[in-house]
């Protein structure tokens, strides 16, 4: 007791910062009046509320038990969060098949357990399955091979 709960302090700060960002952005919007609210009224109200709540959480964090800080999954963050972004960047250009193959491969690198060959095999299997299910069987309007490849092909 008596020490700082870092998780809570950080959480409070995160809420204060997010609230402040939304609040400042809301300043650029028309507030209107209580009777005829503008687009900025409701967000501003919420932003102020979030900052207050965040502040209260910070305040409370000084009176609680200390909680050990755990490790962060840095490698996971890069590859796991990168996977959907990569898919979004390439699905139209490369086309569905190569894009989903590379996305799976990318995600597989987030772990340390999978050897490269295994990762490739896994990605091939996932690609095959997804192409058969989504593109062939369900006929989703995905282009299997995109325009980038035809340029390279030439």
């Amino acid at each position: 007791m008596g020490s700082i709960n870092r998780a809570d302090l950080a959480a409070g700060l995160v809420f204060v910062i997010i609230g402040a960002v939304f609040g400042l952005t809301s300043l650029g919007l028309d507030m209107g009046s209580t009777l005829r609210m503008g687009p900025g009224y409701f967000p501003m109200l919420l932003s102020v509320l979030l900052v207050l709540l965040g502040g209260a959480i910070c305040f409370n964090s000084f009176r609680q038990m200390h909680i050990a800080v755990e490790p962060y999954a840095w490698r996971g963050m890069v590859f796991i969060l990168g996977a959907p972004v990569f898919f979004g960047l390439t699905v139209r250009g490369l086309g569905f098949v190569p894009s989903i193959f590379l996305t799976t491969l990318l995600a597989a690198f987030a772990g340390l357990k999978l050897r490269p060959l295994q990762a490739v095999l896994l990605a091939v299997a996932v690609t095959l399955f997804c192409t058969l299910v989504f593109s062939v069987a369900l006929g989703l309007p995905f282009r299997r091979f995109g325009p980038w490849l035809s340029v390279v092909g030439v």
């Binding site: 959907p84 972004v85 898919f87 979004g88 989903i100 996305t103 987030a110 999978l114």
Partner: peptide, 29 residues
């Protein structure tokens, strides 16, 4: 370690297929 790459592949497709909107994928991240 085998499960999560598969999950990532499916959820990328799933999110994208709703509206064909790549920004939804960036939002996922």
């Amino acid at each position: 370690h085998l499960l999560f790459p598969i999950i990532m592949a499916f959820c990328s497709i799933g999110v994208y297929s709703v509206n064909s909107n790549v920004y939804d994928l960036y939002a996922v991240a």
